[in-house]
Design a protein around this nucleic acid. Structure first.
Lengths: 327, 327
DNA sequence: AATGTGAATGAAATCGTTTACAACAATGTT
DNA sequence: AACATTGTTGTAAACGATTTCATTCACATT
């Protein structure tokens, strides 16, 4: 089904159909005929023809560190939801946690003439900075605040500060922190710094924070806990960089015979569903991951419509403290 | 930089350059000239032109019911992993659980000339059957066994039978089943039938199974449990269609003061991570979701290479019973 | 009545590639 | 020597969309 055939059915020229689709001056009568013809035939314009003629393609590249992760799934769902009502489709590149792949996708997607790229950020290195600068299509980064690029990110620092402040206010003043790879600015650095900021505000020494840097693997909770106890045997409050780590930590604590939260409070980030099942239920922070995806997609659509030369936009999203019973 | 310019530099016709790139008969002399011209100019053929001319595009459409779900994420990751080492990229369509969108994507992706489509199956209706038959590009369905289409699916029936058999063998002979929408053949029907098959093998009346059909929402566990108890107050074993439902059911049972598994055993499907945290730990069935994705992608690549006219292939994947302490 | 304005319209050119076709040369076969 | 066979080569016609250009027409302004 080509634009010619549709035009023939509607009794107009192919140019008129193109104008109908892309917005050009057209009488209401023809508009109606064309609408009917398109509905009748289920015509969709060929991406190939469009791309050849315009040099652009109605596809937006989405680069994610891995797909099989809850937060990534939420963001992607948000992007998909927003894009569904646009003319753009989403082409997905998963890096399988390999950092080089991220930059390769950035390259190959541009070579494939995508209209724009949404990148779920993880680590930030000089080669990232260079690749971002060199990017010839609009680029939106989610989940991280990188300098000089359009971003939609979470208030990891604020969330951590409030969470830790809450824990301190409840009397847990010997804090421990189980973190992840600090090359990830948002999850690795900001959350830890937020905790330390809360300590400072409470008149405590931020360097007194017992801490270990693990990985995103939940097992980090178990191994991390043992290291933490060695660092500070009197520790009575643990904040973990993710709920998965926190839940594993809780299990390990229980095995050691400690009561939660009386002997030691625990908290995490992400509002994982499993946190509603544990005993006690996990206090955590809810981030608006799906909204992050829709915001990023909206920003991208705006960039594509109004030209990419606008000043750098960096949107910070809020969070909600979810108080349950582990503090 | 177009094929014409390269041809001019090499002193040959554009056709010769095309033959050089795609493998046609060509003298060694011209071959060398063209090689030099291409290296000199850094020419790369335009995907748009190729696509338009050949009608094919190096993209594989993946249609999923929703992205933000663990099993979908796993399958998608498997597909992505396999595709990464091929020349194809993945274009993702998420249906947001809307069944019509599924068929719309099937349409629009074909209109966009994708090379093939991988569809994560959910419901199966006459309009699905028709759309599948009418599909002009290779189609692989995952997670469901539909007649007449290439499929990669799980042994839901066998898994349910073994799981229920296990429960019966441990003395839980008054069974209840909390299911989901039975328009989903795999999760809705096969799992329930497997349970009933096990009952029959144990000399029980399969119609004696107390059962309710809920939704994928975990809350189904709570509401379903109450209905089940009303149907059969002496019930001492519950099988749930998913782990999420099972975990909620366990919570509700505990609130009613029942001991698990002494008063009532519980089991689910999917090997959700949360099942390792609950008290008691959840007995479940592990399906190989990621493998399902890689197998489907491998099948697709094979179909694309060796022509789609091969007989219908339906690959059944295995499962592993994960015995923990809820039975 | 003459002129200017702007919207509506279709014909035709264009994008970069592949490939059917025909032409040709070089070789082997009778 | 005539003929078939094989392998190289270039020409030109697609593929399906967008967009420039020129034309028409209706209406408002002088």
């Amino acid at each position: 089904m080509t634009i010619r055939e549709v035009a023939a059915i509607a009794g107009v020229s192919p140019a008129a159909v193109s104008r109908y689709l892309n917005g050009g001056s057209l009488s209401e009568a023809k508009r109606a005929q064309i609408r009917r013809a398109i509905e009748e035939t289920g015509y969709h314009p060929s991406a190939a023809g469009q791309m050849l003629r315009t040099g652009r393609i109605n596809q937006i590249g989405v680069i994610v560190p891995q797909i099989n992760s809850e937060s990534v799934g939420e963001v992607t769902a948000g992007v998909a939801e927003k894009l569904a009502s646009s003319k753009y489709v989403m082409i997905l590149g998963s890096c399988a946690l390999n950092e080089e792949t991220e930059l390769e996708y950035l390259q190959s997607m541009q070579a494939n003439h995508v209209a724009g790229i949404i990148l779920m950020g993880t680590a930030y290195s000089p080669s990232h900075a260079e690749a971002f600068q060199r990017c010839r299509v609009p680029l939106v980064v989610t989940g991280q605040k990188f300098p000089g690029v359009h971003c939609v990110y979470h208030d990891d620092f604020g969330a951590a500060r409030e969470l830790a402040g809450h824990m301190i206010a409840r009397g847990h003043r010997h804090l421990g922190y189980i973190g992840v790879n600090e090359e990830d600015p948002a999850v690795g650095l900001e959350r830890r710094r937020g905790v330390q900021a809360a300590m400072e505000e409470a008149g405590m020494d931020p360097e007194g924070l017992a801490r270990v840097a693990g990985t995103f693997d939940p097992k980090t909770g178990e191994t991390g806990l043992l290291q933490l106890i060695r660092q500070d045997p009197s520790m009575n409050g643990i904040i973990c960089a993710t709920d998965k780590i926190a839940l594993t930590t809780m299990q390990a604590l229980k095995r050691l015979g400690r009561r939660i939260p009386e002997d030691c409070a625990v908290a995490g980030f992400d509002d994982n569903w499993a946190g509603t099942l544990s005993e006690p239920k996990l206090t955590t922070v809810h981030f608006y991951q799906k909204q992050c995806g829709t915001e990023a997609a909206a920003m991208m659509l705006d960039l594509l419509n109004n030209g990419a030369q606008t000043p750098v936009r960096q949107t910070k999203l809020g969070y909600t403290l979810v108080e349950r019973s582990s503090i």
